[in-house]
């Protein structure tokens, strides 16, 4: 946080970090690997783009170590669009995060899709001016990330598969436990904190409010407008769509349809209309054929 000499203005406060996540609600954040793809995403109505060198499906295919993107690529994408630009840092790799902050990306995703740099620790996110989003498969993981300073949580799902089942599992786990926690009495809340491995203060806050203290978005395996409608109805406040758009037959059209589905997720007629004749979705991979589960990364 810095104080400006000429006024009382403060940057990097938690309200400012969380505020940007709030502005993205109801929208779609799209993975892009070139400036041209970023334009396609913006033209389709994306609220933000995630600047990557490879989409998760290709990271899976290629193997090897996946790292932060080349700054030149991130800058080219920042030049190409007017919407916020996010970029990924490896779990625990605070130096990559510092570089992304120096590049002035709008959000940093400390992401399990990249190869983790630290097997025990996530980044201490509080000292940064840039907000962070982190993945979670359950409520305990979400609260640990929030206690480290994350200003947005996304359920992890299984990136690069085109299969929504893991996204549903993680979203249901997080939201189901929140609903159960609101029924816990004050003594039971300590038991919840222990069981979740989460700070008691956050557990008490959720028991009182019935929601996470930051927005909850959904990621990992969403491929169709119907998938988006499903997770938004389950309680996701916005969606990340990765490989599914630019691995499909007609990316511009699918991107547009997914934006429409996020805005009108409760209107089945509208979702039906935008789903019609979209061409083939990404082929995808069933969970049985996966050799590596990205969602298991993170602690």
């Amino acid at each position: 946080m810095t104080e400006h000499s000429d006024s009382s203005a403060q940057t990097g406060t938690f309200a400012v970090k969380r505020g940007l996540a709030d502005m993205l609600r109801g929208g779609v954040i799209m993975d892009v690997v070139t400036a041209d793809q970023a334009k396609v995403a913006e033209d389709a109505g994306a609220v933000s783009v995630m600047a990557l060198e490879r989409v998760p499906a290709d990271i899976r295919r290629d193997g090897g170590v996946a790292r932060m993107s080349d700054p030149a690529l991130i800058e080219a994408i920042q030049e190409a669009v007017t919407i916020p630009v996010m970029a990924k840092a490896r779990i625990g790799h605070f130096a990559e995060a510092q570089i992304l902050e120096a590049l002035q990306v709008d959000y940093i995703d400390e992401s399990e899709v990249l190869t983790p740099a630290d097997e025990a620790h996530h980044i201490d996110k509080w000292p940064f001016t840039i907000p962070f989003v982190c993945g979670a498969t359950n409520l305990g993981e979400a609260l640990r990330r929030i206690s480290e300073g994350a200003a947005m949580i996304r359920s992890k799902g299984e990136a690069g598969t085109g299969n929504v089942v893991e996204a549903v599992r993680h979203l249901r786990s997080i939201l189901g436990d929140i609903r159960r926690l609101t029924q816990a009495d004050s003594a039971e809340q300590y038991g919840w904190a222990k069981q979740l491995g989460a700070p008691i203060g956050l557990v008490q806050e959720i028991a009182r409010t019935g929601r996470l203290p930051v927005p909850l978005f959904c990621a990992g395996g969403l491929a169709t407008p119907a998938d988006v409608s499903l997770v938004m109805q389950l309680g996701a406040e916005a969606v990340f769509v990765g490989s599914a758009i630019f691995k499909s037959d007609d990316p511009a059209r699918r991107a547009r349809a997914i934006v429409e589905a996020a805005a009108h997720f409760a209107d089945a007629e509208h979702v039906a209309k935008v789903s019609r004749g979209l061409g083939e979705a990404m082929r995808g991979e069933g969970p049985g054929t996966l050799t590596e589960h990205f969602a298991d990364r993170g602690w």
Partner: peptide, 15 residues
């Protein structure tokens, strides 16, 4: 001017 105060690093609170 859209984003006239800058990117998210420049986002701020004040009175």
């Amino acid at each position: 001017r859209r984003n006239g105060y800058g990117r998210q690093t420049e986002s701020f609170e004040t009175t």
